[in-house]
Write a protein that binds this DNA or RNA. Structure first.
Lengths: 189, 189
DNA sequence: TTGTCAAGAAGGAATGTTCGTTTTAGTTTG
DNA sequence: CAAACTAAAACGAACATTCCTTCTTGACAA
């Protein structure tokens, strides 16, 4: 399973052959097909595992009370993701997530699950933003859901950058985000 | 070419067969192979086209003087991307970009190009942040490159969300980002 | 202790299919 | 006439999957 993950992260779901995986995990075809009915099932299993790491991290972060400021919140999410479950590197996790997002277009079953999960995640983060507003930290004229999507997008963008380069530290995102949060803009732009 | 793009966006590079493309574009094998030596070349051509839309948008946005505030900057980038070159929908563009990012791991040639391009883009955006600091809009104790990466990540995250759901408006990101920019935080968190 | 046996696990060659690509000969189009 | 294209067949390679064999294990009886 961990070997299949490595293969998929490296080469993508559909450019990875079963033989690639068999070689990586050092098993024969018969052994693998005892546990998975086929490649599609293996893909779904690994995609759902990776996505649930994402899901749990976002959900758990939003449940903190009182909610930490955005920089802490994103730092928490990302650290949780990468600490998740035994990925070799942070980059590998990002690469796999990228594959999962791509697969979402193709696989309707996976797509429905991701859609439902993200809707839930978004609701949690929207509540966080509302709490910011209650505390007077975030201006009231901002639609909470939009701010929530923006913050989630920020985290997603970090994961994408991590996948592409692997040379990005969470502290750097936090510092950058703090900079944006503390900008001296009065009205809007 | 536009047909191949549609196929790749829908099913990914490697789950799309040549036959799929031939059917979509209504050409025979002989016609396509007159212009592309093979599938790999077709993939690279379309990947580079999609990525160059991204690249041009980011670069052009950073060259504006004086630089607009982040919300305007990101709005400009994303509108430029989606207006780019004849994609059917904004979502289709996002899906293709996701595929390109995923392919970057696999294809070293493409990976090197993307890496070089992003390094350039990052430099331009870092200059924008330095200009913010010169104008006293952005606090000085923030490493400009980190803030640049954060903003770029925010745009990348929007594209990813667009690919996954297609139900996101650029104005919403802008409003959300404005909210983050105007948060009432004094020190840090 | 030793031998037996059943069942689960893994091996690995074989299978049929699909894929990317090439080739051929004929057809349209400017 | 020439360039571009079609249609269809054919190719080997690569692929996912199957099927039968072999190995391992643990319970149990002699």
């Amino acid at each position: 399973m961990v070997g299949a993950r490595r293969c998929f992260a490296r080469n993508g779901f559909h450019a990875t052959s079963m033989q690639d995986i068999l070689k990586e995990v050092g098993l024969s075809a018969g052994a693998v097909y005892r546990y998975f009915s086929g490649k599609e099932e293996l893909i779904e299993a690994i995609a759902e595992e990776a996505f649930s790491v994402l899901h749990d991290a976002f959900d758990e972060a939003a449940r903190q009370s009182p909610p930490p400021l955005p920089d802490e919140l994103l730092g928490y999410v990302l650290r949780q993701c990468f600490a998740g479950t035994g990925f070799d590197t942070e980059r590998e996790f990002g690469q796999l997530v990228l594959q999962v997002w791509g697969e979402t277009t193709r696989n309707e079953v996976l797509g429905a699950k991701v859609h439902a999960a993200v809707t839930m995640m978004r609701a949690g983060w929207t509540e966080v933003v509302k709490e910011y507003q209650r505390q007077g930290i975030m201006p009231d004229d901002v639609e909470p859901e939009y701010a929530a999507r923006t913050l989630m997008g920020c985290a997603m963008g970090f994961i994408a950058q991590q996948a592409l380069f692997g040379d990005l530290e969470i502290d750097q995102l936090q510092q950058g985000l703090r900079g944006v949060m503390r900008m001296q803009v009065t009205g809007a732009s």
